Simulated assay, not measured.
Amino acid sequence: MFQNNKRAAYLDYLMIIVGTALMAVAINSVFDMSGMVTGGFSGIAILVKEWTQGVIPGGIPLWITNMSLNIPLFLIGMKIGGFQFVKKALVGEVCLSFWLAVLPAFDLAGNDLLLAAVYGGVIQGIGIGLVFLGRGTTGGTDMMAALLQRKLRHYSIAQIMQFIDGAIVLVGMYVFGVQKALYAIIAVFLVTKVSDSMIEGLKFSKQAYIITSKPQEISSEIMEKLDRGVTGIHGKGMYSDQDKLLLYCVVGRKEIVALKELVDSIDPDAFVIVSDVREVLGEGFIERK
């Protein structure tokens, strides 16, 4: 058990290290090169670098601003989340600042702002997702969102970040212009969607509710031919005033067509409701470790 916990901790830190490296690539080689402020303390660092161009050659480096702004958040995080929360946040922030300082900057998107928004949004979204999967943050608005999410649990961390980053994008609009700010909004949207997908799970399935007059026949066929479990839920048809057995089943995306065909072959009058589900834990889907 101790060895498993130790291995899991190493994996968490590895995801944080790799995630921050990807974030640094997006910030250095896409957003900073394109003059695109996508939010976060890294966005503020890009603004500060632009504002200080005339004072310091090249402006204040991104990693210095990013590191300096995080000090108050670490103090708040230690008070609210405890040392364990701050420990991984500190690792994430140090790693991000390190990668920002040492990784060379390449103009990945050239002068194409749309490519910059897409490349940067996807790369940074994957990076942020990895960091959160490693149960850490990189400080900045990431850590701020993680702290706020403890009180606003009906919002995801990525959604809270989207709101905060939007305010920073508005400031960037006055510095780099409306056009780049509009493309930055596309990048922020992609960051949110990609990181949200990684946090909530990438394995999608389908759930089906089946209202039928032949529940036994259909459930038997599903369990035998599709090898999927079925749950019967007792209900009552309010129009017919008859008791019914509602069937509930979760299948893989590729199996939903076979499920509908199977139901239709047994009871053409059956009522089938299909919707998406995400990250199904249990036998036949994602095994618990």
Rank of each mutant, 00 (worst) to 15 (best):
L62R: 09
T20K: 10
A24P: 02
G39T: 00
Y13I: 13
V131A: 08
M238F: 11
M238V: 11
V175R: 08
G166C: 10
V230T: 04
L246V: 15
A258C: 00
Q84S: 13
D269C: 06
V272Q: 05
E50W: 10
T38K: 06
G172D: 02
D32S: 14
Y209Q: 11
Y239K: 06
E261K: 14
Q216P: 01
P61I: 11
Q216E: 13
I222Y: 03
M173Q: 09
V91Y: 12
S240A: 13
G140W: 02
G54D: 13
A187H: 02
V91S: 13
K6H: 06
I64V: 15
I185N: 04
D227A: 13
N5A: 11
S265C: 05
A105T: 12
V272H: 07
E287Q: 13
G252E: 05
H234Q: 13
F74C: 11
Q84N: 14
R7M: 14
A146R: 12
L75P: 05
A21H: 04
G120P: 02
V277S: 12
F106Q: 10
M144P: 00
N70F: 09
L69I: 13
V250M: 06
M36D: 00
G166N: 04
A187P: 01
W51F: 15
M198D: 01
K206H: 04
Q53L: 15
M23K: 10
R153M: 13
A145N: 06
L202P: 07
Q216W: 03
G77I: 00
K206C: 05
G54N: 14
Q124W: 05
V118G: 14
A181M: 01
N5Y: 12
T192V: 10
Y13S: 12
M36R: 06
D243C: 09
Q84V: 09
Y13P: 03
I218W: 00
F31V: 06
K180F: 04
L73H: 01
